[in-house]
Each structure stands twice: as structure tokens, then as C-alpha cells.
Design a protein around this nucleic acid. Structure first.
Lengths: 341, 341
DNA sequence: ATCGAGTATGACAGCGCTGTCAAACCTTTT
DNA sequence: AAAAGGTTTGACAGCGCTGTCATACTCGAT
């Protein structure tokens, strides 16, 4: 229950230091000694006191997940991956939302981060979008000399580690899929202007269309903001005119795609027979909708997991800064699958 | 940046202990001394080292949120409330999912908890459903002498603190609302058998019906499992026969209500004109659906917040065990609002 | 046998803080 | 003016662990 290293040392008949060495997998311990210590530790149900370890080694065995993201779904997945990663290294994750109303006097994000990590001296920080693009937060982290990894940052900063996904490529593949299904007139709904993914996804769409020698007409591209409502509005415009109506609509995220589906169903347009719809993100919504949404599954869990690995894996200890590009997955479901084609 | 108590003590011309007293708001410090110390601390940007505090006081300033819940949405909200609570007390929250595949050898939940909290000796634990009903987990916590609070447990255990919501009353009010709208034949879809809320919500439904002298026919009650699919199946059965078709359907959660809406729309039944639908939980889905769902908003965030308060609030320090009953909210939206009624 | 070069182990200080207990300093009361 | 009781302060040990450095032990090569 409350066995300490000293206890284990006494029972095993060795010094505290040797026990410490065994428990931390340090070299230069006789195999026999190691075994014995391990056996005693198990028997005594020893488990280290993190506070003491931390105090002695000036590490905290804690990683912070700093976020400021309205999407609980996204954060939950990142977190889930990050926690699993932490467990592999005996670490724990502390989620730290920024910009809570509890501190109205908080001026800048930079200060907020400073204060936060001053109190809780973690060994590393994972920054989720849109914070991964916040120069203030990054500056704070650098000034405090805390290792950190960006999740899905928009720009490529040199000297900073990051985990990301290729949005352009994903959008391109989705578009190619649509084109392969025989679609020539494809509507596109853009995302929120300030979100970095917006431009990337549109870029991928444009590239694929260009490669297939298909023209992207202005009236086929609508500005949305990632909300269901904006998808509805855009869809109404896109589907308004029966003559110029596209045969497929590619929405920059699932919520907007859901808006499209709902408009189509109201207008009596059968999906996917008369209109293919696809989204992006593979939110839970995608499977709930009828028909189920064809969409892009982002490696969100994996990004959390990899971010931790970059921070903690001793094998990567001396790699200065690396960017992990993780694989997305095209999830083809009924909303964009021409039956029998 | 790295100022210690010793530094502050030196500059302020007092002993470490006095600084400690000031920083922890202990009594018996001259006002003048307190002021001076505070000033120096601010000037030096002192902030305590949690590991050292923890080691010395055998507290960790950490609370664990232990869960094993498939619904990220629910957990995210609890967590959000709990984090806000923690901040008020200078604490931090560590989410700890149970039953991850990282430890396949894990036998019982009891052991898992034991191991977990042995490693990370937190000052308190918040248990979310369905873990709040797990006697194994509770036993482990009790044996380790770690204070804990149950979130939405099904039974009323004496001597254990809990935060909960009155599911029965909520279901009753929702049913009453439907009855007030003139419905006499109301279909009900039950939730997952093993989930404690299932029975409670059904109970509330039955009570309201009985109070209004309405009979609950067997064919109007279907077993679901909280999934969208099960809502679809149940709705198909409920709506199959045009003659015995209910005029309203009360699904035990939003996902199943979404299933009902989708079936209705496929069958050409207009919601809410020909069929009122309501759900339970007020998930994000409820607002995305068309029409938007009438549902019950649970005080999930508040439960997280209150749980922390019970654990940490010094004012409640000596209260042995208390149960906080938090208010739900009936959210009336289009899916169950007879136009112009 | 003797030396050197690992390899294995232990003694001990100290990480930054708090708890304990004693000392010093006020008041007020007699 | 002394005793009593309260308030304010500080000295010091020690929480459980790791880092440093010294010591002891092992083994092949001379």
C-alpha cells in the first residue's frame, strides 16, 4: 500500500540506489539482483511516489494538453490518444483549457500560458489547433523552455515539432473519388475563413479538378463556416437552379455536409442517386445521418498519440524537431456511392 | 522563473516558514509581514513547486476523473466542469480512462483502479457512470482511503457523496409536456438494459401516464439500447401499423430519437405535425437534426463542477457524505411542439 | 600473482516544501 | 511588576526519491 524504496531495499537486502536502478531500467545491475528486487517490489506492491521522483529528478511526469477548441469531439480524441501514449511512458496527461471565464483579467494568451505552466511545471506540452498557430502561446513556451509539439498547425515552422495530416491530399483524393464516379459538376462548400484547414481543403479540391480538366465554376463554390446552418444555406444556393445543379457536393466538413443532406431531403432530391454528398472529419454524425456520409477520417487519435511519442520517446531524444505526417482515410459510405456503379 | 520559498524568505527578511504560512493563507501572520511577503513573491514571480508541496504535505494537488464511458461527449462535459472546479482550488485534473487495451492482463476493475491510483496518488477521485455503479471500483477506492464522489449513480449508497440528476422527474415532466399537448397515445423507447438511467426514465414516463389516467399499451413500449440503430428499429415497429400508431414518441435518448425522426421522414410522416418526437440528453445532435429535438438537458457540466466542490471545498470539509441533486432543463424545440397549439 | 578496466553496488546529500515544536514577543490581568 | 495567555516567528527534520561519487568486486591479460 505505502511501500517505499527503502522497504523494498531492506527486504531485498540491497541499497535504495540499486532498487532505484532496477525500477528505472538503468544499466549495470546484475541480472540476479534485478530479478530479486523485481520480485520483492511485486510482492510488496511497491509503486513509486511521483511527487518524490519529480522532486528529486526535477521532472513532473506530467504532460499538458493545452487547448482552446470549441469542438469537444476533436479534443476528446486527441486526449484519448495522448493519454494512451502517456501510459506507455509512465506519464499522465493534464488537460488545460485556455481562456476560461474564471480569469477575466487575463490579458493575452501568452500570459495565460505562462501563468498556467508556472504553477504546473509539466515536462512537455501538446498544442491543439487553433492554438498551434498562436505565436503568442508558442513564444511563451519557448521562453519557458518547455518542450512542445503542435497538432495540425497550418504553417511549417522550422525547429518545431508537429504532427499533422495532409488536408490538401485528402481533399484531392475525395475529389478524385467523386470524379471517378463520373461526376463532372461538383459543388464545393468552403469552411470557416479563419480556420487553416479551409484553404487547404479547397486547394486539394481545385487541384484534383484541374488535373481532371474539369472547370470549377464560381457558382459551384460557396463560402461556409463549418456550421450545419451554413451548409444549409450553401446547399440551398447550390441546388436552387435545377439546370445548373451539380451532381455532387463536397462539403469541407461533416456538419455542413449534414446541412446539404437535409436540404436535399427537403427538396426531394434523393441522395446519392441524384446527388452525391461528401464531408470531411468523420464525426459521429456521419454514421448517424441517413444516408451515412462519405467522408475523410482524420487520424486525430493518432496525432495525440504521436505527439506524446515525440515528446517522450527516448529514441527520439536528440532529434531536434520533426514533423509526423499521419495518414487519413477515405471512408466511403452511402451518401456518395452510386448504387451499382 | 525558478524562485523558491527560500529566495522569497531571504528577500523579505523572514523565515521560510513564514513565507509558507502567507502563501497558504494560514492564520497568525502579522498583516504587515503578510503584505511584505506577498509583495516580494509577486516581484520574484514566485510560484510553488507542486511536487515539493506534495511530497512535504503528502497531497498531490491532483484529482482523477476515472471513466469508462463510450460517450466522449458526456465525459468531455463532465471534465470541463471538473477542470473549472479544480482551478478554483489550485488543483489539476487528470483524466484516467479505465480498461484500455494497453494492459490486457488487467483482470478486474478493482485491480485496475488500485494500480492506477497507486502510481498517481491523487487527493480525490470522480467516478462517472457506469463506473459510479461499480462496486469493485468503489471498494478499491475505499480500501485505499481516497475520497471520491460518484456522478449519477443509480442507487443511493449511504456514506458516499454523489452528484446526480432526477431522471425520473425529468422523464415525468417530459411526458407531462407531451400530455399537455394533447397526446394520448405515446410511444416509449427504452434505453440500454444495463444502464441505470433506463429504468428511471421509463419509471418517470409510466408515472406521468398513470397520473393522467392514460394507459401504456405494451405495443407502445419498445426496448432500445441507446443507439441510433435501435431507435430506427423501434420506430419502425411503433409506426408500422397506421391504426395503432402513437401520436408522439418519447425516446430515452437523443440518438434513438434521431432514429425515430429519420424513420418518420422516410415514411413521409411529418414531424411534429403528425408525430411529436422527443429525446433525452440534449446532445449536439439535437440541434443539428431537422426538426430540432425537444429533449432534456442534463446538468453534466455542473455535475463535474459540483463533484470537485464536494471533494475540495474546505467549507464542506467535515460533512461526511452528501448528495447534490442538480436541476435538469426541458428544452422544447420543434420536434415536439405542435404548431399553433 | 598483478594490474587494469570494466561492472556492480552503496553512502550520502539534497530537491522545495511543510509539520512540529520551541522561542520570542505582545497584551492584559492581578 | 509579574504572571498568564495569546499571537507571531523561526529552526530543523524529513517527505521518497535520484544524482554524484566512491568503493568493491570480477575477469581476462600480462
Amino acid at each position: 500500500m505505502k511501500a517505499t524504496i527503502t522497504d523494498v531495499a531492506k527486504v531485498a537486502g540491497v541499497s535504495m540506489k540499486t532498487v532505484s536502478r532496477v525500477l528505472n531500467n538503468e544499466p549495470n545491475v546484475a541480472a540476479k539482483t534485478r530479478e530479486r528486487v523485481l520480485a520483492v517490489a511485486t510482492e510488496l506492491k511497491y509503486s513509486p511516489n511521483l511527487a518524490a521522483k519529480g522532486l528529486a529528478s526535477s521532472r513532473s511526469y506530467l504532460l499538458a494538453l493545452v487547448y482552446d477548441n470549441p469542438s469537444p469531439y476533436y479534443i476528446a480524441k486527441i486526449q484519448s490518444g495522448a493519454i494512451d501514449g502517456c501510459r506507455k511512458f509512465g506519464y499522465h496527461l493534464v488537460p488545460e483549457p485556455l481562456g476560461l471565464p474564471d480569469d477575466a483579467a487575463e490579458t493575452t494568451q501568452e500570459e495565460a500560458v505562462h501563468r498556467l505552466l508556472h504553477r504546473l511545471p509539466v515536462d512537455g506540452v501538446i498544442l491543439t489547433p487553433p492554438l498551434s498557430d498562436s505565436s503568442g502561446v508558442i513564444k511563451a513556451l519557448e521562453s519557458m523552455n518547455i518542450p512542445f509539439v503542435l497538432v495540425a498547425p497550418s504553417g511549417q515552422k522550422t525547429g518545431i515539432s508537429a504532427v499533422k495530416m495532409d488536408d490538401v491530399q485528402a481533399a484531392r483524393e475525395m475529389t478524385n473519388f467523386l470524379i471517378a464516379q463520373g461526376h463532372k459538376s461538383i459543388g464545393f462548400i468552403k469552411g470557416h475563413l479563419e480556420h487553416s484547414a479551409t484553404a487547404l481543403r479547397y486547394e486539394g479540391f481545385q487541384e484534383a479538378m484541374a488535373e481532371a480538366n474539369l472547370k470549377v465554376h464560381d457558382h459551384e463554390v460557396k463560402q461556409g463556416d463549418f456550421s450545419f446552418r451554413s451548409g444549409v444555406v450553401a446547399a440551398e444556393e447550390l441546388l436552387e437552379d435545377v439546370n445548373t445543379r451539380p451532381t455532387a457536393i463536397f462539403a469541407s466538413n461533416d456538419d455542413m455536409a449534414a446541412g446539404v443532406v437535409s436540404v436535399a431531403s427537403r427538396l426531394g432530391i434523393v441522395v446519392p442517386d441524384e446527388l452525391s454528398v461528401c464531408g470531411f472529419d468523420d464525426t459521429p454524425l456521419a454514421k448517424i445521418l441517413f444516408p451515412q456520409l462519405t467522408t475523410v477520417q482524420q487520424p486525430i487519435y493518432e496525432m495525440g498519440f504521436e505527439a506524446v511519442k515525440i515528446l517522450l520517446d527516448p529514441a527520439l531524444k536528440n532529434t531536434p524537431a520533426l514533423t509526423r505526417n499521419l495518414d487519413f482515410k477515405l471512408v466511403v459510405r452511402d451518401s456518395a456511392l452510386i448504387q451499382g456503379s
